[in-house]
Simulated assay, not measured.
Amino acid sequence: MHRSFLVAFALLVSACGQEMDQPAANNEAQAEAEGPVKGVDRSHKGEAAPDAKFTNPDGEETSLAEFRGVPVAVNLWATWCAPCVKELPTLNALARTHDKDGALGVIAVSQDSGPQGSVEAFLSKLKVDDLGAYHDPKMALSGALNAQVLPTTILYDAQGREVWRYVGDLDWTSAEAAKLLAEAGAPQKG
Results as ranks from 00 to 15, higher is better:
69 G>P: 11
70 V>H: 12
71 P>I: 06
71 P>M: 11
71 P>N: 11
71 P>H: 05
71 P>G: 11
72 V>C: 12
72 V>T: 15
73 A>M: 15
76 L>N: 06
79 T>S: 15
80 W>E: 05
81 C>E: 08
82 A>K: 14
85 V>W: 07
86 K>M: 10
87 E>M: 08
93 A>K: 12
95 A>P: 11
96 R>W: 10
98 H>P: 08
98 H>A: 01
99 D>L: 03
100 K>C: 00
100 K>S: 12
101 D>H: 08
103 A>N: 14
104 L>V: 08
105 G>M: 02
106 V>C: 03
107 I>P: 05
109 V>R: 04
111 Q>P: 03
114 G>Q: 13
114 G>T: 11
118 S>T: 11
118 S>V: 00
119 V>C: 05
119 V>K: 00
121 A>F: 00
121 A>K: 14
121 A>I: 05
122 F>T: 02
123 L>R: 00
125 K>F: 10
125 K>I: 01
125 K>T: 14
125 K>V: 00
127 K>N: 15
127 K>F: 04
130 D>M: 02
130 D>F: 09
131 L>M: 04
131 L>Q: 04
132 G>V: 01
132 G>F: 01
134 Y>F: 15
136 D>G: 11
137 P>S: 02
138 K>S: 14
139 M>L: 15
139 M>Y: 04
139 M>H: 02
140 A>E: 15
143 G>W: 01
144 A>H: 11
145 L>M: 15
145 L>H: 10
146 N>T: 05
147 A>W: 03
148 Q>C: 03
150 L>I: 10
151 P>W: 12
151 P>Y: 10
151 P>N: 08
